[in-house]
């Protein structure tokens, strides 16, 4: 984390700072100097970095060069929008991906399964941004079914603004969420299929069949339960990927989340925001990994047993 912060800090330091685009053309040398001092950019690099570290240890990631507000606050302000988008995408991936994957896994030789599998290759081959552009062209501009960009009306839910509870919000959410979900949908589908293909031939399924357990129950209880472990693990880890990849989707659909903030901050060389974003994302990943570990042990009793033994 320290290394990352140093890399980014020094990298952005080397490229430059936003002073020249923040002051008006007519400002003279004196005003320019004031602006540089105002941002603390007149100090040598090591002092700037040590100041940053000292503050970071107290939970202060610095003020944005552009907005002059705490960088952390700016990011947290935008976080609900990104999380809403990522969670929706995750939900779509699960709700569509698992049934399709099970279908393909149960009947691996059928024509429909082949179509599903080839489709899934498209799912992770298509570059997200291109699909986003094409979706926008088709559904927003040509057919006018869905709004093209932005986030719809939001409702306050336990202190957080959410948009999925309003019709307008849902219609704005649909395209970006599907766009972001595509890759993971293909992933879930393929994982599920692979899992099903393996589980189907295992003894306990044969026993269950022999015992006369209903087909429906076999599929929903026995098979599903057994393929959940890899799916949950990968999805848990992929959730971080979704949050990161929302950078692309947010850029295409002008979704006001933290990914878009990152891209804009990169464009403006707003160093405190860039560093703060990466710090938060890093923390986020640590938390996700912990949660996945916990979930994993709940789903798979063997892991618990092993830990007890060791």
């Amino acid at each position: 984390m320290l290394f990352m912060s140093f890399l980014v800090f020094s990298g952005v330091y080397v490229i430059g700072d936003p002073v020249d685009i923040l002051i008006s053309d007519e400002a003279d040398a004196e005003d320019r100097q004031r602006a540089i001092e105002g941002l603390g950019l007149d100090k040598p690099f090591h002092i700037q970095y040590l100041t940053f570290l000292g503050r970071a240890l107290q939970g202060d990631l610095g003020d944005s060069f552009i907005f002059e507000e705490p960088a952390l606050g700016l990011i947290l302000e935008r976080m609900p929008a990104t999380l809403e988008l990522a969670l929706s995408a995750l939900l779509i991936a699960i709700v569509i991906g698992i049934p399709l994957g099970m279908w393909a896994g149960m009947r691996p030789e059928s024509k429909s399964a082949r179509v599903i599998m080839t489709g899934s290759i498209l799912g992770f081959s298509l570059p997200t941004f291109w699909v986003g552009i094409m979706m926008m062209m088709l559904f927003a501009v040509q057919l006018r079914w869905l709004p093209s960009t932005g986030r719809g009306d939001t409702v306050d839910l336990l202190g957080i603004d959410v948009s999925f509870l309003t019709l307008d919000g849902l219609s704005h959410l649909a395209m970006p969420a599907i766009n972001l979900a595509l890759f993971n949908l293909a992933l879930v589908l393929r994982l599920t299929r692979a899992g099903v293909k393996e589980v189907v031939h295992q003894d306990f399924i044969k026993f269950a069949r022999a015992k006369g357990v209903g087909r429906r129950r076999i599929v929903l209880v026995h098979i599903l339960k057994n393929i959940m472990i890899p799916v949950v693990t990968v999805l848990g880890l992929e959730f971080g990927g979704l949050v990161a990849f929302s950078i692309v989707t947010e850029t295409v659909f002008a979704w006001p989340g933290m990914g878009k903030l990152l891209i804009e901050s990169i464009g403006l060389l707003d160093r405190p925001v860039i560093v703060a974003y990466l710090t938060i994302i890093l923390l986020f990943f640590v938390i996700i990994n912990l949660v996945v570990d916990v979930l994993y042990s709940i789903l798979d009793p063997r892991v618990r047993l092993q830990e007890v033994k060791s």
Binding site: G11, V12, I15, A244, L262, I266
Partner: peptide
């Protein structure tokens, strides 16, 4: 590997140009 590829590439390109 636990860190998304796109983020790493993004950070590198921001610093490298």
């Amino acid at each position: 590997l636990s860190f998304p590829a796109i983020l790493i590439a993004l950070v590198l390109l921001v610093t490298l140009g």
